[in-house]
Computed example of a mutant assay.
Amino acid sequence: MDIEVIRTWFTLDNIMKLIQEYRALGPLPGIGLTILEAFLPFLPLVVFVMANANAFGLWLGFLYSWLGACVGAFLVFSLIRRFGQKRLLMFFSRHPKVRKLMDWVDCHGFGPLFLLLCFPFTPSAIVNIVAGLSKLSAAQYMLAVIIGKMVMIFTMSFIGYDLHSLITQPYRTAIVLGIIFILWYVGKRIEVRLNKSLETADNGERDAINKSRKRRGFNEQ
């Protein structure tokens, strides 16, 4: 089945109906959807979070979305950490950009990873995979996930909690759009700095190799 066809079904109305249909299961559908998104990153996490906020209220909706997102991230991290060296998943670690990101995470650790996870525009699936393949400890990663996703999920929940007021009260819409723009801008700046750091590390590695070759050539002479 085409991924785009699947994505078009996951609208806020459809997810709200799904949660209401399985209301007898309590928060499990809402938690399960955010766990599922960790394994299928093409699914719209923001829609799941907004649906939870509308179905269960701001605070409970935030709690269920946050719990599901953290559990999903840890499951993906654990699976990649456990089976990352198997032939089936070796192509991840062999990809040049993934390899550079792994080295960057190993070098910088918790802080930048936490910032990346704060922003809804960060591809969290890639972050989960890279962290699983890196040498970062599980405790460090889960701390970054728990705090970073707390910021991200609460922002989404706040936006989705009362969509009607966003339409009827223009100033709230302006505030939300401002928050989204700031998150997007800061996320892009982090991405730029990340790319520069990767390029600098790559250039430094090449310089070290060239210097080593020159020394060997000098010694042979």
Score class of each variant (00 low, 15 high):
120 P>F: 12
109 G>V: 12
91 F>E: 03
113 L>H: 02
106 D>Y: 08
103 D>V: 04
111 G>K: 09
129 I>N: 00
82 R>W: 12
85 Q>I: 01
118 C>W: 03
133 L>I: 01
108 H>C: 02
112 P>K: 04
112 P>V: 06
99 R>C: 00
125 A>M: 12
96 P>E: 09
84 G>D: 10
96 P>H: 08
103 D>W: 02
114 F>A: 07
132 G>T: 05
84 G>P: 06
94 R>G: 05
88 L>S: 13
109 G>M: 10
105 V>Q: 02
84 G>N: 05
99 R>D: 07
130 V>F: 08
125 A>H: 11
89 L>K: 08
135 K>Q: 14
92 F>I: 10
90 M>I: 14
130 V>K: 07
98 V>W: 02
110 F>L: 15
134 S>I: 11
102 M>Q: 12
128 N>F: 12
133 L>W: 02
86 K>S: 13
91 F>I: 04
129 I>F: 03
92 F>Y: 15
113 L>E: 01
94 R>S: 10
114 F>M: 09
123 P>A: 06
83 F>T: 02
108 H>A: 04
97 K>Q: 14
131 A>V: 10
121 F>P: 00
110 F>Y: 13
81 R>C: 11
88 L>I: 13
122 T>V: 13
127 V>N: 04
97 K>L: 12
121 F>R: 03
89 L>D: 05
134 S>T: 11
127 V>H: 03
86 K>G: 13
130 V>Q: 04
122 T>A: 11
98 V>K: 01
109 G>L: 09
135 K>E: 13
116 L>I: 05
130 V>M: 05
96 P>A: 08
85 Q>F: 00
136 L>I: 15
84 G>V: 09
115 L>Q: 04
119 F>M: 13
121 F>K: 00
113 L>W: 05
116 L>W: 06
86 K>H: 13
117 L>A: 06
121 F>I: 14
132 G>W: 08
101 L>P: 02
